[in-house]
Amino acid sequence: MDTSTIVPADISPGGAPAGARRAKRSRSFWDDAWYKFRHNWAGMAGLTVFVLLCLAAIFAKQIAPYDYLEQDWTAILQPPSAAHIMGTDDLGRDIFSRVLMGGRTALMVAMAISLTGAIVGLLVGAFSAFAGGKVDALVVWVIDGVMTFPAIWLAAFVSVATAPALKNLAGSLYNATGWEFLRNEVMISYAVVVFAIGMINWTWPARLVRSQVLSLREREFIEATLALGARPRWIIMKHLVPNVLGSMIVLVTLSFGNAMLFESSLSYLGIGIRPPGASWGAMIFQGMSKVRTHPYLVLAPGITLAVVVLALQFMGDALNDALNPKSRNK
């Protein structure tokens, strides 16, 4: 019998049976991580959902049976049926098509936020840790300050407070360049949402990178590289970045789900994506007034949102188990 198939994913290297150890020896760190991830059902389920979402978002226009803006006054507030598998809203728009487009919105916004967040966080965190002393204390203080505040309120506040300014900016840019998209209210609302959520999102990676750099700096291998005559740049590129990458991947995954949730939250509050842009949050809000009689208005986008957020959560947890074996609880 092939032992390797029945060995649990989190077996300790010392106690592994011979078959497993042989299999393990040939794997690199990343192979090993992938092996662990593959054997985590929740993580794989999360990954599947996420991949499906990405595909659906990319091919939204092809998959959607209707135009997401098309109003059909003969089919208002239809419950789910063969023609409209998630029903129609109070303007007779096909909810399924709108959920697909909302997925595209959420995905685009989350991608922008988590990538900029990761980059800004990486820079700030690394800078802070290396600068040390007063600079570091100040950065930590700012991060803590941002974090004491209920995150959604901060995002909402920034979104409201900066929307007029960004709109003005886009207006003057339009006057200078004549680019039509700068007058597109939906585009501007995207920018506002990304900016508002981004203001908070960078703190998580920054804090992580900082503590990682600090703990790595304590590890002697950094000093060993320094002793070899390496300049700081070499140490960062060849040692710090690869070591930080594992935790970063986990964090970006988790912050991706978080960003999607925040986008929906802002749109739900009416200060996120402007109509006619499609957003799950806005759809939920619009459906709320009729939730008792037409629950599918809320359930269709709501369950989609919950499933996607959950999928990313499971994926992040599984990645964490796979990439940071030390944080695993026995």
Partner: peptide
């Protein structure tokens, strides 16, 4: 983790 991942503005209407 499922219960916490569902946004309040989805959980609340479902609960209602």
């Amino acid at each position: 983790s499922i219960l916490s991942s569902i946004p309040s503005f989805v959980l609340a209407p479902v609960a209602i």
